[in-house]
Design a protein around this nucleic acid. Structure first.
Lengths: 222, 222
DNA sequence: ACAGCCGTCAAACAACTGTTTTATACATTT
DNA sequence: AAATGTATAAAACAGTTGTTTGACGGCTGT
């Protein structure tokens, strides 16, 4: 911890230990994404990174410090993705924007270089660490708010109408499940992650969700 | 292990050790449901049941044996629930049967004495043990098959049409998420588990899902 | 050139995990 | 009454976990 602090203090650029630090983060990305925080051991990561067991504690102050470094990166990418997906279809109708959001989001988060992110997030949501609050605040909540505004516009009601949030949950859960749910993966054979498969999935979720939302117009607001 | 075999062999009724055995199972139900298989330690269960650490190995042959006893009970209840939910609305239209299925299923699985089951299942699906295959085969697969037949009938297409399974996944994931997803629970405040809340939830999932399914009629089968 | 810091390493640490052993009562059977 | 089998108990087992230690070499700056 003291070493880390000193290092961050006056060796900002071109640190001489860049290699091990970076190798640990790299391996941690794939390992944490594959098995989740609790299942991964520091010895696994160090072995994969060809580093000593003590390296993680030295560079990151502990296992959780390393995880946070990886997760914070994921959060940043997710925020970018959300921003891009929210910007998509700007100027169009609420339905068009919802379709664009789903398509852009699924593509971005499912693309190969970032595919570890959706796995990591899936694990974090399935069995959360204490970092879930940050994830919710920084990426989920804004996304939910945006989806809520779209749903409200499609329904032609206020965002506070309780039908809105229920619909948002229904849409949101389809994202999550289609991406990471092991049961869903056993049911849909063509969930391979390639671009065409993602396109079809996005198309379905959009069609199904918009159909579901529209149907709520004829339901009393309770 | 030898003790267990001998005990089961010729001490079927009114076993003298009923108490500890039963106490262990009881505590294991709530603990496994709350934290999942991996997180729960045998010492936790034994402490809660006021039994010795060796009791689990003696009575169940090991931690996994105890878990299987609990999980098998859950599977049995779930099968009953599925059967009941499938029988509900018999004779009615596919839409009516789907609505009945959702309502009965959510009520049964959300009711207080069995509420541990949905938590246990949620954990088993989130991070599976080797028992997930049995769960899928015995409770998920039949449920999926039934839902697929309903969706196909509503859509007026064959069950092999790929739109059918996509819709089933969309419906199925709403079940799961609404019941156990920690993120969803942070979004919908009124997810308390009481009868009225469950009723409204069932109503929403049914409306949303049927609206979504209907919308797929106008989508090419790809 | 020398002190000081930095990154690395093998080794050990303390705290757990599930499981096994050994012993002791109690009940049932022979 | 002796022998057998059953349930519980305390203790120890072997393995794994994340973390800490202390020493060694390389580098930098005054």
């Amino acid at each position: 911890m003291a070493g880390r602090a000193a290092r961050a203090a006056h060796v900002d650029v071109a640190a001489p230990d860049r290699e091990t630090h970076e190798r640990l983060v790299e391996e941690a990305r794939t390992l944490f994404a594959a098995d989740g925080y609790h299942r991964v051991t520091v010895r696994q990561v160090c072995a994969a990174a060809r580093a000593n067991v003590a390296a993680i504690n030295y560079h990151f102050g502990g296992k959780y410090g390393l995880y946070r470094e990886v997760l914070d990166e994921a959060i940043a990418v997710m925020r970018d993705t959300s921003d891009g997906a929210m910007a998509a279809g700007a100027g169009g109708s609420a339905e068009q924007r919802l379709r664009a959001f789903i398509r852009v989001f699924l593509h971005r988060v499912g693309e190969s270089p970032d595919s570890w992110i959706r796995q990591l997030m899936a694990h974090e949501m399935a069995n959360p660490t204490e970092a879930l609050d940050d994830v919710v605040r920084e990426v989920i909540a804004p996304r939910i708010a945006y989806l809520a505004s779209l749903v409200a516009e499609i329904l032609g009601v206020d965002v506070d109408d309780e039908r809105v949030m229920r619909c948002v949950v229904s849409v949101q859960t389809q994202f999550q499940a289609a991406m990471a749910n092991p049961v869903a993966r056993r049911l849909v054979p063509g969930l391979t992650g390639d671009a065409e498969s993602l396109d079809r999935l996005a198309q379905h979720i959009a069609d199904f969700s918009i159909g579901g939302i529209r149907a709520m117009r004829e339901v009393p607001s309770d």
